[in-house]
């Protein structure tokens, strides 16, 4: 009887929590199809006109382009640097490897606002004022921990005897890395890339200090829109971003399987 009650309570809580987390997404998606500028339930019909207005938002395309550039580039650089750093930390006999690993991951634990102000002051001090480059460097600080943490975890579980096994079976060293290490680490690679991409793309607190009037990243531009004209265009844009994220997740699932990415299998 006790267990039965407990199970009911647990499920109620779990479903309630899931609803609480997911309902805003449903609301935003519903709002994006609202025929009137003011979102009202129940909907009195459906319209896609807000979607058509996204592209005409003031400064939308440059902001989207900037955000994508920074997100993709910082992710690519983080994947290279983070993987190499992870190899040195997880595999090498580096003195102070653990400390170095903690240092690499530490920006994750720092409030974004503090990080943003600190970077702004620092960049000013050393005369590093090019907005685009400053943004890229700042986003690297944000994305590198995701990659480093995931790759260190992935590598520490990787058995390097597998490479030796592949070599004795006829693979060159490089071939062994490619045929054995890369597939084994693919889930770590993909999940850290995904995290990094999203962390950069929707970063607000660090970017806000480093953008100027002419170059604003998408999240900052969106906040500006909401202050100026709060109509469902933003809901439409948010829905599109949500859809894009879903597509990324689906592709990842197809490639390596989300269960492997979450580290729950094997």
């Amino acid at each position: 009887m006790m267990t039965r009650t407990a199970i009911i309570i647990c499920w109620t809580l779990a479903i309630g929590l899931a609803l609480f987390l997911l309902l805003p997404l449903v609301v935003i998606a519903a709002a994006s199809f609202s025929p009137t500028p003011v979102f009202d339930l129940p909907l009195s019909g459906a319209s896609t006109r807000w979607y058509g207005r996204i592209g005409r938002l003031d400064g939308f395309w440059p902001s989207l382009s900037l955000s994508l550039q920074i997100a993709v580039l910082s992710t690519a650089l983080s994947l290279v640097a983070g993987t190499l750093a992870a190899i040195a930390i997880a595999r090498g006999r580096l003195p102070g490897a653990t400390a170095l690993g903690t240092l690499l991951v530490s920006p994750l634990m720092m409030p974004g606002l503090v990080l943003g102000i600190a970077l702004l002051q620092y960049f000013r001090m050393i005369g590093f004022t090019a907005t685009w480059s400053a943004l890229l460097v700042a986003h690297l600080v944000v994305t590198l921990p995701y990659v480093a943490r995931t790759m260190i975890a992935g590598l520490s579980r990787f058995d390097f005897t597998l490479i030796e096994a592949a070599r004795t079976l006829g693979c060159t060293y490089a071939g062994s890395v490619l045929r054995v290490m890369v597939p084994a680490l693919a889930p770590s690679f993909l999940i850290s890339g995904l995290f990094s991409l999203l962390a950069s793309f929707d970063n607000y607190p660090v970017s806000i200090f480093l953008t100027d009037v002419r170059s604003k990243t998408l999240p900052i531009r969106m906040l500006q829109y909401i202050e100026e004209a709060p109509d469902p265009t933003l809901a439409a844009l948010s829905t599109l971003i949500l859809a894009g994220t879903l597509v990324l997740l689906l592709i990842s699932d197809r490639l390596v399987g989300l269960h492997r990415m979450a580290g729950t299998a094997d």
Binding site: D159, T161, L162, E164, A165, A166, R167, T168, L169, G170, C171, T172, Y173, G175, V180, P183, A184, D266
Partner: peptide, 18 residues
């Protein structure tokens, strides 16, 4: 190098490709 030796190795950990 090992890949041109034609040896077969059975490792303690088996080192099977997961």
């Amino acid at each position: 190098p090992p890949h041109r030796r034609n040896v077969g190795v059975v490792f303690q950990s088996y080192a099977l490709f997961p």
